[in-house]
Amino acid sequence: MTDVSVPTRSAARTDRPRGRERKAESRHPGSKKTMAAMLAPSIFLLIALNAYPLFYAVSQSLRDGGIAGPGEFIGLENYTTALQDPAFWEAVRFTLLFTVVSVFVAWVIGTALALVLRRSFPGRSVFRVLLLLPWVVPVVVSTTSWNFLVATPSSPVPTLLRELGFGDVQILANPGSAMAIVIIFKIWGTVPFMMMMMSSALQAVDPSVEEACRLDGASRWQRIRHVILPIMSKPVYIAWVLASIFTINDFPSVFLLTGGGPVGSTSTLVVFAYRLVFQDFRTGYGVAVAFLITTALIAMSIYFFRRINRASANG
């Protein structure tokens, strides 16, 4: 007698999916090719729309062009000129100050407000909506309102300071006070974003963990520092990255409030690049500065995303 092998149940089960896959492939033999052919025009269009401006900008940064034309090829001279330009480094210093102070202070205030709004109290919804107004109102309206408050000696804030005995204070005419106003304005506009990010992050904190720490005798500050903030580390890094990118690239807030003055004291790198291209008509130099900004943003993003991955691995 010949032995006839009977397939086991496990073998039959493993054969079924393969049979289904074969049937699906036999029914639609060219489905993958068809999908690829249908997606190809859209992918090509997206690449072309993004690649052409990028390569054209790279070409402009390697030339001494202006309003009359692209100019002659000069290699990396625009980049070396930027690194040797005192005005460029002054813009770098203020951009760093503007970004670090605005993001950190806005994060501290936004986290504090998120912790307050975590508890129920009368009028919480109305209070939350009012706190979102600086972020919802268009920046043109906000800067116009702030200009009305501080721009001239007859504005409300200088008038109040004069009545308090500080003399004639010209806030936007003094470099120190102008820098302070620009930073305060940016903090005012960034706090709602930080509050929303931190409110979402706080939802991941288990109340039972906080309750256990409280029963163990941990104070409110100890619970925030050693329990809540470590759990929120990943959303915090993401909020820092986004807020830093928004702040470094923020052109209208600075330009509409002070125009980069007085004497270039509030000129960020974005405003500096804008002036080079559209006021001084040094297109190649301005585009080179823009690429330096992009390089700095990429380096900062890589650093923070590594911290995010490390926080995810530890979590």
Rank of each mutant, 00 (worst) to 15 (best):
R27E: 14
F166I: 06
I67G: 02
S145H: 05
S26W: 13
E211C: 04
H226I: 01
A37D: 04
R306G: 06
V58Q: 02
I308L: 08
F44Q: 06
T258G: 05
R307M: 12
D3L: 15
T34D: 10
I109H: 01
Y52T: 12
A313I: 11
A51V: 13
D216V: 07
A106Y: 02
D85M: 10
A57E: 02
F94R: 01
V139C: 05
R310E: 15
G217Q: 11
I74N: 04
P262G: 09
V141S: 12
L54D: 02
E72W: 03
S26Q: 13
G261I: 09
S199P: 04
L172W: 06
V136H: 07
V103P: 05
P192L: 10
F291K: 01
P156S: 07
P230H: 12
T111N: 11
L257N: 01
P29Q: 09
G261E: 05
R118I: 01
L164Q: 10
A68Y: 08
Y56R: 15
A290Q: 05
G260I: 06
L164C: 07
M300Y: 15
V227F: 06
Y79Q: 08
L161G: 01
R22V: 08
M35V: 14
T283M: 10
W188Y: 13
V140Y: 06
P252T: 12
A82V: 04
V105Y: 04
A313K: 14
P158K: 11
V58G: 07
G30M: 07
R307D: 14
V169L: 06
V6L: 11
R119C: 00
H28M: 06
W188R: 08
R13M: 13
F98Y: 15
T159P: 01
D250A: 12
F305C: 09
L292G: 04
L62W: 02
T144R: 11
R20V: 15
A36H: 08
P7Y: 03
F94P: 02
P156N: 08
N314R: 14
D216Q: 11
R20I: 15
G259T: 07
I183C: 09
D168V: 13
V140C: 03
F193I: 09
Y274N: 07
L297V: 09
N314M: 12
S199G: 15
L115T: 12
L130E: 01
T190S: 15
F73I: 08
V136P: 02
G110M: 06
P153K: 09
V101Y: 09
V271Y: 12
G75D: 13
Y79L: 12
W221S: 10
G71M: 11
L149C: 03
A212W: 04
L202Y: 11
V4D: 07
F291C: 04
G75K: 06
R13E: 13
A51G: 05
P175E: 10
L62Y: 02
I43E: 03
F305Y: 14
